[in-house]
Every structure is written in C-alpha cells, then in structure tokens.
Write a protein that binds this DNA or RNA. Structure first.
Length: 306
DNA sequence: GCGTCCAGGTCTACC
DNA sequence: GGTAGACCTGGACGC
C-alpha cells in the first residue's frame, strides 16, 4: 500500500536519514543509492508492518511516499503517517535555525542541504535504550547490542515477499521480563544491563513516563535533569537525547566530537572542553545542533555525497 | 591461539 | 564540587 505525506519545502530526506547513526541500527535499514529508509512499525492495533520511506517524484517534490508491506485501515494509515512525521521531524520548525545559519558563512551549506533534522525512533524508549548502548563502547558493539535486543526480544515479522524474518525493537515489557544475567550475556550489554532493566521496569510500573518528553513544555534545564535521572544516562547521553527531543542547548561532547573539533579547529592540538563550549556558545539555544552540523559537515560533502 | 592493553561514558565512593 | 577507580566489551597488538 502506498501513502503520501507532505513535507516542508526545505526538507531533505537524504540529509535526515543520514543525519546520524540511527539509520544503521535495527529495526531501521537504508538504501543509499535509492535514498530510502525502511523500518518495522509495531502498530497499536497489534499489526506489524514494514514501511519504506522514499521521495515521491512530483514536480514540486515536496512529498514522501510510504510503501507498506500490507494494506492498512484508516486508523492504521493515520498512525503510520504520524510515526513517519515524528521520526523525520516533519512538524518541527527550522526556519529560525536556518536564519541563524545564514548569518555565518561557514554554515551557509546547512540550509542549502536541508540539514539539521536528526532522525529519531518510533518511541523515546527506543531512543534512550539505543543511546545507553552507544556509551563507553565502539559503534560496532552498539550495533551488536541493538541487533541482539531486536532479534532476541523483539516481535517477529515475516515479509510475505521475501519470507525473511525481521524483528521489531523490543518494548519495555519485553526487556523488563528478562534478567540482568540475560542482558549481560545474551545481549552483550555488560554493565549497562542493570540500567536497561531498571529503566524498563520503571516504565512498566508507570513510575516514569518518558514518552511524554517529546511534548513536555518545560525549560530545557528541567528536561535535562529528568533525562539524567535515568541511570546510565550521563551528560553526553542526556545532551544527545535532548537533541532528539527538539532541544539543542546542550553540546553532548564525546570523544568523537573532541577528536573532530581538534582536527577541524585546532590543527589536531587537544584542548579542554571549556574551549569547545566557548566556541559554540555564540549559537545560543541552537549550539548543540551547530556543533553537530559543524563536525559532520564532511559527511555531507564527501562521505554521503549529498 | 592466547594474553595484555587500551578506548569508550557513567556511577559511586571518597576527599 | 572535583577526582579516582570500577564497570565490560571488542579490537589491536605482541608473543
């Protein structure tokens, strides 16, 4: 089944898909040549579908086409459209951000590429779990942990076309029903296991409502403290999660960011984080996004050849 | 093939 | 408030 979704005029699908590493983590998959993003969607009706998102070829080119693996009723169609809009940040306003970028010649490229929309998951829970899985390890290990979570705890889906088994991202109940030992040994989460277990159990017991973070109208500092209250989520993870929640006041500096900043701005010479913070402070409430644009600029120019 | 070392954020205990 | 050490894994490296 094919669905059509309108997008803002400055929206760029490729820039959004490859805005960071999420597109490489299950249950996302992507096709760089065809410029499409595919993921399993676990609908509230209980139906599981595969949805491929790609550009709709029209004269105005301001729409997306979503190809689903099976027909959907009107309620399900509405849910799929809403999830796609949420993941691709289609309802978030970037006019002010692009206006700010247009004041700085080193960022002229940002509005031209329609960059700045950071891909996010179906749920905040999925984003938080994945973010914990990025901490203190290589990207390869992050991929292993997320793959194990999906394949060992996610709901199964069989595509009628390929017959290949695919797996959803597990819900909090699925993780809460396991043990620390299982998460350590089977998921390879290591010391992160108790953090994942505690978060999932708190959600199941309704002690914490992290899905509300996407719509909460509270100051960023307050939201940051709420995010930090999740064990295993430190300053780096919380700062990055805030970006996925639409707040860009925090930089979220990790070792990769430091390395890239030193290469780009200090000829490889190391400095303290205070120097990095001072550099991006000029961008005010957008500083976290300007940092990310600045340090990933080469992706757009070379690696992904946008 | 095996052992050792290192990188990668966060938590906790301690000062 | 700042700091040191532990946590765990995969990968690099030397033997």
């Amino acid at each position: 089944m094919k669905l059509s979704i309108s997008v803002p005029s400055e929206f760029n699908l490729k820039s959004t898909i490859f805005s960071h590493g999420w597109c490489e983590l299950l249950p996302f998959s992507n096709d760089r040549d065809d410029v499409s993003l595919t993921r399993l969607i676990d609908l509230s009706s209980g139906k599981i579908i595969s949805a491929q998102i790609k550009e709709q070829r029209t004269k105005s080119n301001n729409a997306l086409q979503v190809v689903t693996s099976s027909p959907l009723n009107s309620t399900e169609q509405k849910e799929v459209k809403s999830l796609v809009r949420t993941s691709l940040r289609l309802d978030e306003h970037f006019t002010e951000f692009y206006a700010e970028a247009s004041k700085h010649k080193e960022f002229f490229w940002v509005p031209a590429f329609g960059a700045g929309r950071l891909l996010r998951s179906q749920t905040v829970f999925e984003d938080v779990v994945k973010m914990i899985c990025t901490t203190n390890c290589s990207w390869a290990l992050t991929e292993i942990m997320v793959e194990n979570l999906c394949k060992k705890l996610g709901k199964k889906f069989s595509d009628s076309n390929s017959n290949a088994l695919q797996y959803c991202f597990p819900d909090p109940e699925a993780i809460a029903g396991t043990s620390e030992k299982f998460l350590r040994k089977e998921i390879r989460a290591g010391y992160r296991a108790p953090y994942l277990l505690e978060l999932s159990k708190r959600i199941v017991k309704k002690e914490i409502d992290i899905e509300a973070w996407r719509t909460l109208q509270i100051p960023t500092d307050e939201l940051f403290q709420q995010v930090r209250s999740v064990k295993g989520v430190g300053p780096y993870a919380a700062g990055n999660l805030l970006k996925l929640l639409g707040h860009y006041d925090y930089l979220a500096i990790d070792s990769w960011c430091r390395k890239k900043f030193f290469e780009k701005h200090k000829n490889g010479r190391t400095t303290s984080d205070k120097v990095i913070e001072k550099y991006y402070r000029q961008f005010g409430k957008w500083q976290g996004l300007f940092l990310w644009m600045d340090l990933t600029q080469y992706w757009y120019e070379k690696e992904f050849a946008f």
